[in-house]
Structure formats: structure tokens, C-alpha cells
Design a protein around this nucleic acid. Sequence first.
RNA 1: UGGCCCAUGGUGUAAUUGGCAACACUCCGGUUUUUGGUACCGUCAUUCAAGGUUCGAGUCCUUGUGGGCCAACCA
Length: 561
Amino acid sequence: MSDSPKALNFIEHIIEEDLKNGFSKNALRFRFPPEPNGYLHIGHASSICLNFGLGEKYNAPVNLRFDDTNPAKEEQEYVDAIKRDVHWLGYNWDTERYSSDYFQQLFDWAVDLIKANKAYVDSQSSEEMAIQKGTPTEPGINGPYRNRTVDENLELFQAMKDGKFQEGEHVLRAKIDMASTNMLMRDPIIYRVLHSAHHRTNTDWCIYPMYDWTHGESDYIEQVSHSLCTLEFLPHRELYNWFLDQIIDKNKVRPKQREFARRNLSHTVVSKRKLLKLVEEGVVNGWDDPRMPTISGLRRRGYTPESIRNFADTIGIAKRDNLIDVSLLEFHVREHLNKVAPRVMAVLDPLKIVIINYPEGEVEWLSAENNPEDNLAGYREVPFSRELFIEKADFREVANKKFFRLKLGKEVRLKNGYIIKAESCTKDEHGNVIEVQCTYDKKSKSGSGTAESLRKVKGTLHWVSTKHAIEAEVRLYDRLFTDESPDTHKDKDFMDFVNPESLESITGYLEPSLKDAKPLHRVQFQRLGYFCVDKESTNEKLVFNRTVGLRDSWAKIEQKK
RNA sequence: UGGCCCAUGGUGUAAUUGGCAACACUCCGGUUUUUGGUACCGUCAUUCAAGGUUCGAGUCCUUGUGGGCCAACCA
């Protein structure tokens, strides 16, 4: 965005250091490596922005690589959704890759490993292997198959590939050190037998490589210079390097794995398992429910790619545990929408007012500014008539000086319209005000330039003409969880913190200019908040989602009482 | 009872690599305003603790404390 010198994060420091030590800027290359087994969420957005942001900063290519080594969990549907979301965020990958593209190369290298006596076929159950593996505080011991001959290993591995065995009968393990303080170095499994079809290679393979064997070698094949992942992979780095050492050509770029802390957002969860549970138990209506922290949910809620990118940029990247308050995300949508969202008037909790000195049957079309923050946004016309809706909260029979909205005997300005005075009101049998009778100052029309129109009146209200108003379903969303970190309580399940009031669906009354609004159209309902037309919206039945409310200092004053 | 990682306002990141702790959000207070919005101004820290090295330590060293990660044929 700006060219002003910006503080570097620790990853950028590492890259700058590499550059300083002679690494060629042209050899810089990054990748975003999702597993296609779920939808992308706000946490992924941070990683996407980091990797693609680095690509933009250094003018380096960034691959989109699907880490698809587990055919049991991965599907084409997710591949498509991930590609759509990355594009929507505004990024373009250099090439689209799949770890499965490298299955043959990975197999060949595994054979080399066996020939070098650095891998062997183990034929025990996973339980037996787990016992021999030891614990973080006790070393493991060598298993009975560890010293099979190279020829026997070669033969068995080939037979595994040829489908001669059932799942679980044999695995290929790297021969490293069963006593290592790093559990991952205790002869990690690199291949397992899996008789399931893969979304890309179908039934070509019945053995599949494990993550550790695949990831670093894939980085190497793609000549990725800096392979960035989250902190829980830090102990994997030693193994990542060990695997690289077995195959590295000194003339090629050696990928470097570095780890950063995953970003945690308050009042939500992001694990795929938990998100899935919310969907399956019907707490939300699908992966793109506007309350979900998924990219598709945020999009449907009305968030803009820019706001998410700015958010990611602001929170930065580091190595310590964190819990970022959603209010920061909300700040960034408001900041962007304030600049680009057209202003319109809508009344969500209507109270009828009648302007008793305004001619019956008369309609005036008043000019209204579309966006005071954007002088290219122009003007539109809104109809004014004798009967209007205002918000119930904007009228009180009596109130103190701090309440500068409509009260009996006092004046208020109608946005883009006239100054009115409340004269009287009528109530139902319960004492609820159901109508307010007002008079208007005919010379006070907004924009007319008259002395009356320039009068200082403290309050300005939004409104809609009752007979011109169009009805719409308006979905008011709130945080999905009442707790800021719902899944970190030892004694409580995150489901216990689901906010029962996360969705309130009401009927709103909109100015007629919104009649043909199409899905994903974003507007500001003046004095209320930012709203976005939902994908379920039609011309017959408009549906709006509240993206986020406006900051409301009046609500704060009220709360203090 | 092992190994590794981390510790800077309420929150998230900075600090020219040993030289006046900065930016954003939130909160609170104020100015402007035909959105109680926006914009603008102001308040909010002896950098986890204790020692040490140094003219000088958020930064280096030691110890402690607190938090996290590691025992899937997941990634």
C-alpha cells in the first residue's frame, strides 16, 4: 500500500539476512500448502497473506500446493473451494501443484534410501511400534525388523507398492535413531499401505507417503527457498533437514523451514473438526454461514478482501502465543466499508410518525448523498411523504438533554429532509407509543440553503416513507461464542459457549433504491451499520446480513446508567 | 519428570541488532459533524522475576517463574 519504510517481521529479517549472505533474490520462492480436507478460515488467511505478501514484496513466485497425501480425507470439492478463496483474497499463484504430482519421484527416492540402508520395512502392528518408540522422557528401542537386509527391504517395499499386502501389514520407516530426544527422529514412518482411491491419482497407488517425507522433498522439487509453517512443526525441522540431506544436490536451492505462531482470533474456533461439528449439529447453516470464521463465511457476511488483508498485515507475525481480539478484525471492515459502501436509509424497528401539516398524498423526491467519504459516489433520490417510519429508539416522550433525538415539543432533523417537531403521540392499551404526530418546518429542507435549513439542530434521524418502503429480511449476527477463547477450557466443552443469540432475523423497511440489490452488494444502513445482500436474496424477497454495526457511543452512554 | 520454543500496555506487533520503548486496536476523556458514524486531539508500560556483563541492557549471559509443543500408519 505505502512505500514508507515498514518494520520487518522476523521472517523478513531471516530473508534479508539470507540475501545479505549472498542468496540470490531471483531464487526466492514461496508456497502456500493447504491440505484439501476442509475450508479455508481466517487463520489460513494469515498464512496466505504472509506467503503471497512475501511474493509481492520480493517479486518472487508463490506456488499453490495441495498437500494431498491422505486419500481418505481429501476431496476435489475442497480443492475448488480453496482456489476460489485464495483468488477472492486477491492473490495469484505462480503454478498450481499437488504433492501427488511427485508420488513417483518420492517412491524412487525412497528406494534410494533403502539402498543406502537408511530405510527399512517394519512389519509390526502400530501398537508394538508405539511401545518401542518410548515417550518424550524415555528413549525408544530398536524393533525386530530394523536390521533386515537391503534386498529383503527392496523386495518387500516393491510388494507393498504392488498391492500384495493389506493395510497395516507393513510400513516403510527411515532408519535414524530410536533414542533421539526428538520423538520424530525415532525411525519415522515414511510410507503406509492405503487401499483407497485418490482424488487425482485414483488407484494408481496403494502406498502413500507421509507428511514429513513429502513436504520437504516437495519444497525441494519446486525449489521453494523459504518454507513457512506454524510452530507445531518446529520439532519436524530436524527431520525435514535429515530427509533433505539424503537427496540434496548442492547446486540447487536448499529449502529452509521456519515456523511462526498461528493466529488465534477471539470468540471463535478454527479447528476443522470443531467447525465441522458446528455445521453437522446445525448450530450454523453450513460452512459459509456468516457467523463462521471461514473465508467463505466472512465473504457472505460482507467482509472485503482488503479488510482481511489489512487485518493480517496489522496483526503481523511472530512466535509467541496470541489471542487477537475480533474487534480488530471489525475495525478493519469498518475502515474499508466506510470508504466504499454507499449510504442508504433503512428502519429496522419501526415507529410511525405522521407529519400533520404535510399535504396528504404528496410525495417529494429528495436528493441524498451516496457517500460523504467519496465525492465520486454521487447522489440518489429518496421519497418523502406525510407518513414515515423512524426507529422506536429514536423517540421518547420525555428525556434529558443528553438524548438528542425526537421528544415531545422538541425538534430533530430528518436526514436529507426537513426539521420536524414532535407535537403529540398515541399509545396502545399497554401504554406503548404507536404513532407520533409531528409538524415540519417547510423552509428547512436540506440543501435548500435557507436560513431555516442551516439551523443547528442537535439530532439527525434516518427514516423511510411508509408507502414507499420495501420490506426485507434482515439477519442480525452477533459473535458465535460468548467466551473469548471457547476451546481452551479444561473442564468445559467449546459447545457450551455457543451464543444462543448469534442470529436474530427481523423484518426491515428499506428505501426503494435498494429494490434491485444483488447478492454480495454492500451498503451502510445509516446510523445502524454495514449490511450485505445475502446469497439467498431475490428480487421478490430481499435478504440482508449485518456485517458489523457502526461504532455506537450512544449505546455506551446508555450502558453506564 | 526429558528435549525444544516463547515471554514488551487490556490486545496484537515494533524498536536502526547494545543507545530517549514506537505503531495500530480497545478503553476512557475531548473537538468537529445534517450518520451519537467518519476525521482529529489527549490519557493508559519502571519490557515476567532475580542476579551478572557494560559508560549504557527490552536486546547479551546465568538461574528461576509462567505458557506452549513433542509419544497418529493425520497434516
